[in-house]
Design a binder for these strands. Sequence first.
DNA 1: ATAGGTTTTGTCAAGCTTTTGTACAT
DNA 2: ATGTACAAAAGCTTGACAAAACCTAT
Lengths: 304, 304, 304
Amino acid sequence: MTYKVLDSSAAPLYPIREVSRLTGVNSVTLRAWERRYGLIRPQRTPKGHRLYARDDIERVERILQWLNRGVPVSQVRELLDQPQAAETSPPQVGDWDSQRQHLVHAVDSLDMGRLEALFNQSLALYPVSLCIAELWQPAIEQLEERWSDQFGATLQRRLLETFLRTRIGTRIYHANQSSNARELVVARLPEDSSGFWALLMGLAASAAGYRVQLIDGELPLGEFPMAIDCLGAKALLLASGQAERGEVVRRQLPRLAEQAEVPVCLAGPIARIRAGDFENTSVVLLGEDLGQAVGRLRSIVDGG
Amino acid sequence: MTYKVLDSSAAPLYPIREVSRLTGVNSVTLRAWERRYGLIRPQRTPKGHRLYARDDIERVERILQWLNRGVPVSQVRELLDQPQAAETSPPQVGDWDSQRQHLVHAVDSLDMGRLEALFNQSLALYPVSLCIAELWQPAIEQLEERWSDQFGATLQRRLLETFLRTRIGTRIYHANQSSNARELVVARLPEDSSGFWALLMGLAASAAGYRVQLIDGELPLGEFPMAIDCLGAKALLLASGQAERGEVVRRQLPRLAEQAEVPVCLAGPIARIRAGDFENTSVVLLGEDLGQAVGRLRSIVDGG
Amino acid sequence: MTYKVLDSSAAPLYPIREVSRLTGVNSVTLRAWERRYGLIRPQRTPKGHRLYARDDIERVERILQWLNRGVPVSQVRELLDQPQAAETSPPQVGDWDSQRQHLVHAVDSLDMGRLEALFNQSLALYPVSLCIAELWQPAIEQLEERWSDQFGATLQRRLLETFLRTRIGTRIYHANQSSNARELVVARLPEDSSGFWALLMGLAASAAGYRVQLIDGELPLGEFPMAIDCLGAKALLLASGQAERGEVVRRQLPRLAEQAEVPVCLAGPIARIRAGDFENTSVVLLGEDLGQAVGRLRSIVDGG
DNA sequence: ATAGGTTTTGTCAAGCTTTTGTACAT
DNA sequence: ATGTACAAAAGCTTGACAAAACCTAT
């Protein structure tokens, strides 16, 4: 067992309690990680006390990123030991965080070319559900939050909308061509100003094999029964982000759900925010995560 | 009795329930046809469950065609075993009037399949400018007029919008890839509730060789200068149908036109209706006809 | 029972709960699929815990697609093991390769309905120049090559010719109606047995805005001067694929080029093959790629 | 069309092991 | 600080079950 050489240079070193505070990882856990998996190997004082360098703390943060993605602790070490392949090439495999940052920045600066490259690249490399869960959903949440502050960001919103509409629309179109599966109507809640969630929901459902009829403009709730009927849909899937003045929806949606002859489902952030409003109604809550939502949909549509 | 050879190739096989769902023939009936007349002979699993290939499903559909013509089930088999003559009705050429009627009817009855066929067929046979001038522009005018009466037609509106967005968006996207021409920003006037005119305008401009950045959502007029700037556009093209309360636009648009460093143009029905409002301002009126509008644009953009 | 080789590269591995979350498939079900049908075989830790790679997750998604199309679980495995089959990879967005394969196959099997669908769909979604460059030109090259071997393929040839003549002819006709641009005569070389290249060339030129007069039957070179003259053409555009015994052309074409009062241009594969033959003559070689050919044409016709 | 028996397939349960964060004694 | 211990959560396997879907024959 070799300890790092104590470097007398002016690099700051932190004791374990500080690292714990900075990263949010219990110090006991930090020690366990070191002992069990050799994940981090800080310097030691002559008495044996741990002294963490900046690099070590960054390493802990990278560990946390992997954990957040669902990778088991026991598997993280190998991932960290191959940093050059992973970290050096910017459009790298699996680095969703940096991809998301790039994405957000591309939208912010109206760099449509970059946006396009990121879209193509992500969807070419990973399964749709992963792209949505790891990249697009978080990125849009981040953007929405940022936009809620500033006023003048309508342009970014609109351009991203236009962009996603075309791309996702084309994908859905082609998928529909070769699918005989149950038809879904995917739409946004009337109060949702941006159609992002409906678009992503449509993409997710289409990738899962459903035939999707997307309605990406505002449509009064009252017209949905006709839509379901005319289009022969097996379920109605409504998606939305925030809902500011949800009164109308709260009252009308349960009624729609009873009236309709097919399941009426709700997904996206609103399904979390307004969860309480729809208890004991026929409205099916599919949760915030769009990937999971599609999963749950399966048992509802195909089961019923 | 010979069953088909089990083919190890990757042809999907469907159980009887799926065949029943796809063809509308009760599964009991399907079995009866097989037992009594040997009409279809699907593969079987080792345990005896039927597995239908695509060919089998098509066969069922042909059976239904004969039945619809009044042929008794017992006679169908002989008919199927004969090579069938191709029966294709070639699309009529140049009959724009009837095409438009079909189009309007397809939208009215939410027959998305028909809508798609008409779109594909028209654009495959005729130049874009002709399709717009003879088919899409008149059809949308007709629809808009009809919709202005009824209230509940939002669904039709939205579905047509969604449809056109995807198709036109894709076309513009690909045209942009292979074009180095002047960039245009095409958008709708803030007051235009439907984006049809902006979409058609974008299609026309793109087909004429321009790089088009489409903004198909509502954007406050105040944000356009930034849009033009960031996107490096050579002109701003606003399109719109009717505009009821045009006060805001009437006042703001001229100001925008003076402020902007590139020509600000107006096209679509509004350019006729509000023609008087913009005399003696910097706003360039391109007229109602979108094809002509693009023509005039050339002298403005490429000339300047 | 063989486990996958543990790969030391930095690929993230996910435990079953994460896969379940991402795909929406209950983890119990995932295990059942593995046990019963061997559908997915993830790596294992030394203690037997499953570790799914990204590939595995994609595999689960593909499974779900088949399930949604109604294929029974027990049948899915075979489908997954044959990924090259046409059914498995539905025509993706911009996936020209697969579109071309479909096209070639449709022609081969005389499936005119499919041929028409592909024609319509490609031209409806993408700009003409792109369709030619990415789909039609390569497809025809592929077909020509295939046909050069077999003898009995004349039927395919003729049917494709008839098909393209009608479609492209209609398009050119209508484009001419609304164009005031320079007139071109597009024809095939007398020795070219099939008119494909002339047809595509005509389509490309027409889409680029020229008025095109198409001559799609064989015409002796000697008659072209009169044709040019009578039709008031600004250039003569000859297109051809292979040319076996090019003697006649080699001698006559330069003479024609000198004689004629307008540029005489050559495009298509022959422009590459016989490039050497026309050095130091007045014949303008536009190259094999028809899209580029039109581009070069512009400087020649509009410049001269 | 119904009846009666079989197959398919998602889910549950029991019993045991592994993983992993935290607590406690040294 | 270290190492052991512990407990909750998550996994694994085998076996079984039940609803839905199928089959044949009447």
